[in-house]
Design a protein around this nucleic acid. Sequence first.
DNA 1: GTGGTCTAGACCACC
DNA 2: GTGGTCTAGACCACG
Lengths: 121, 121, 121, 121
Amino acid sequence: MLLHLDFHSEIPIYQQIRNQIVLGIADGSLGVGQRLPTIRALAQEAGINMMTVSKAYQLLKQEGYIQTDRRSGAMVAPQPGAGPRAETMEALRLHLSELRLAGVGREAALELCARLYDEEG
Amino acid sequence: MLLHLDFHSEIPIYQQIRNQIVLGIADGSLGVGQRLPTIRALAQEAGINMMTVSKAYQLLKQEGYIQTDRRSGAMVAPQPGAGPRAETMEALRLHLSELRLAGVGREAALELCARLYDEEG
Amino acid sequence: MLLHLDFHSEIPIYQQIRNQIVLGIADGSLGVGQRLPTIRALAQEAGINMMTVSKAYQLLKQEGYIQTDRRSGAMVAPQPGAGPRAETMEALRLHLSELRLAGVGREAALELCARLYDEEG
Amino acid sequence: MLLHLDFHSEIPIYQQIRNQIVLGIADGSLGVGQRLPTIRALAQEAGINMMTVSKAYQLLKQEGYIQTDRRSGAMVAPQPGAGPRAETMEALRLHLSELRLAGVGREAALELCARLYDEEG
DNA sequence: GTGGTCTAGACCACC
DNA sequence: GTGGTCTAGACCACG
């Protein structure tokens, strides 16, 4: 469980943690049922506040990506496949528009999307 | 020039304005050379402060989406097609992963992307 | 007398006019005693307001670069060689510092300055 | 961290702050990694508004001179040495021309530039 | 008329 | 504690 945090980024740290765990689940490096590090361990390893890690875990739990068990900590939840969130769709619309305005053609954009979708660790 | 602002969103208002103008340029509802509303007009219409609109315009100018002419205000700039920003790529990677975890299959995801890319007003 | 004005620049137009005339005098394309176009002519040619040209001429006169004669308009003044203005020195200090921070070495910077100093039309 | 602000200057205050910090980095009085005063502290010390300081910091960040760390404020960034900006070159051309018209000879001008380039606190 | 700058305050997100 | 955002007003430079 190696996190790459950028303390100079404009993305909040708790969000960076959340994003990297989501990416880890998607690319297979975090399997269903696998236990995540404890809040304390992750905070110490990354040199950040426990509250920050806690916030990330709460967010992931609320979004259904992980489950918490009082005895054994947090683990990757079976992914329900509930269909995309509205926010995800809106973000995709925006970023695909930016892609087009940046001069990326239709074919190139779709190839890029396919590559990013397929990505596995 | 109708903006839909969500004052309760966690996305800053100036960013929402920026996003909607980018989408407007991409879907063709804002053509190259077309004049944007003045800062004052947009602020009044949306019921927000001039400085908030000003911040959005400065961001758009800095990103190259619009130009300001000392004589006549802001207009849509010719899009330079400078290639995608690293941030756009990262965001796409994340959102496509979310799509997959939400149970959207490869074909469905690419169809969705194609549809979003093609979108024109 | 060809002016290249950038209406999208953050430098005011009257200042752009002033700068280009100073550069013209320095590189020899405008000789001492040579008559400048009338305010009206220059404004029409450049498609700008007469007030803007007037402001540039006033500035140039105040700085001693040109003289105005009620009968014959404006002409390039004999350059008094009064030593550099404090503002010029301050600007040079700032821009040379920027050069150094941008990684331009001492020799390269001085060669650049020599080249810019020598420039003649 | 002493700033000398001229409230009557035509140069905006936020730009004056930006310039003096750049000069401070260049002359060594602000070393890489050194923490800048907080926005609040600098604003109070200089008797100006927080937003004015904030604007200066945002400009410096955008230009790569400083970085902000969510945890501890702003610090001087490692200077990337990305080569001079076109604006810097244009400004140098103009000011060297002014120098020549002010009667400063080639040798004297280059000595002056060398002295300004070398300046260290 | 336009955009740019600045103020004096406030609230919020993040850590 | 920090920086980020926003407001409601004001003044100014520019054209």
